[in-house]
């Protein structure tokens, strides 16, 4: 659990983060959302003390982070950034092993962990271990960057616009992987972005920021249905609100259990937007739904989408 309690950061007398309070429960994927200059990155960087707060306290699992030496704190918190910051003179394996080495893990354990992480990110260990960052594509570099952040199995992962610099198709794939890894590991993740679609897709909790303040923190659905102010409403975007609403709800919520229908089945984790898209493409008003193992569990109809 992370608690930010009345945190303030000033540069040249101007408050970049102003009296900000926020609680993020364990296992949450919290997205700090806002336009550039709103203080979201500064907020993130205060959690691992890359930036020192001028006032207020930050607690991780109940302990004030001031009690730790900055390096010790950072080795316990994963950190991934937009430009990856991979060390260009180290191989992929060396990069991923950075923090385990700092923590003096034994060699075989480090090697096993590198292999495990590469597999988790669907990079063939034999092919990728010895490569240098400049030999990787942007998406691969980003995967290695996140793998490095996860290497020492931190309870908390901080991500600063990690997917902003990759092309839309790669970004989509990386987002799916992050969701998969979040579900698989249950890590607490704080994720900074200015992209509303990305926030809606990933977050369990969205904190919308403006001028150093949090203007609303809510689940994606709440944010869409009950924006706290005109600012939030504008930021979320009035256009396509219906589609955005569909995109934050899962097929599992609306499934009619026990019934069956012909057609290609939808995974229950798919969004209602995906369901609408699939029905339109297959020119049908009902589709079967399957559980993660692929077993049919029921159907969903066009009418269910707008229920």
């Amino acid at each position: 659990m992370i608690e930010l309690d009345r945190v303030t950061k000033r540069y040249d007398g101007r408050s970049v983060v102003d009296d900000l309070s926020l609680t993020i429960r364990s296992g949450e994927l919290c997205v700090l959302l806002g336009s550039s200059g709103c203080g979201k990155s500064t907020t993130l960087r205060m959690i691992n003390r890359l930036v020192t707060a001028d006032a207020g306290t930050i607690r991780v699992d109940g302990k004030d982070i001031i009690a730790f030496a900055p390096e010790v704190l950072r080795r316990r918190i994963g950190y991934a950034i937009q430009s990856t910051g991979l060390f260009p003179h180290w191989t992929v394996a060396d990069n991923i092993a950075t923090v385990p080495r700092l923590l003096d893990w034994p060699g075989p354990r480090i090697a096993a962990r590198v292999k495990e992480l590469l597999e988790l990110f669907r990079l063939d260990p034999a092919a990728y271990r010895g490569k240098y960052p400049h030999q990787l594509s942007g998406g691969e570099q980003q995967r290695v960057g996140v793998a490095r952040a996860l290497a020492a199995d931190p309870e908390l992962l901080l991500m600063d616009e990690p997917f902003a610099a990759v092309d839309p198709i790669t970004r989509d794939a990386l987002q799916s992987e992050l969701l998969r890894i979040h579900r698989a590991t249950g890590k607490t993740i704080v994720f900074v972005t200015h992209d509303i679609e990305e926030a809606l897709r990933l977050a369990t909790l969205i904190a919308v920021m403006d001028q150093g303040h949090i203007v609303q923190s809510a689940t994606p659905l709440d944010l869409l249905e009950h924006p706290a102010s005109d600012f939030v409403r504008d930021f979320v975007g009035r256009q396509g609100l219906g589609l955005k609403l569909l995109s934050v709800r899962r097929v599992a919520e609306r499934v009619r259990r026990g019934e069956s229908a012909p057609g290609e089945s939808l995974p229950q984790e798919a969004s209602l937007r995906d369901a609408l898209s699939a029905m339109t493409a297959q020119r049908t008003d009902r589709l079967p739904v399957a559980d993660p193992a692929g077993r049919p569990i029921g159907i969903i109809t066009l009418a269910d989408l707008v229920r």
Binding site: N48, L50, P70, E71, V72, L73, R74, R75, R76, Y79, I81, Q82, S83, T84, G85, L86, F87, P88, T98, V99, L102, G145, R148, A149, L158
Partner: peptide, 12 residues
């Protein structure tokens, strides 16, 4: 970004 990443992962 490399320097920042070095700090971020906890190098002294």
């Amino acid at each position: 970004d490399v320097r920042e990443a070095a700090d971020g992962v906890g190098l002294s």
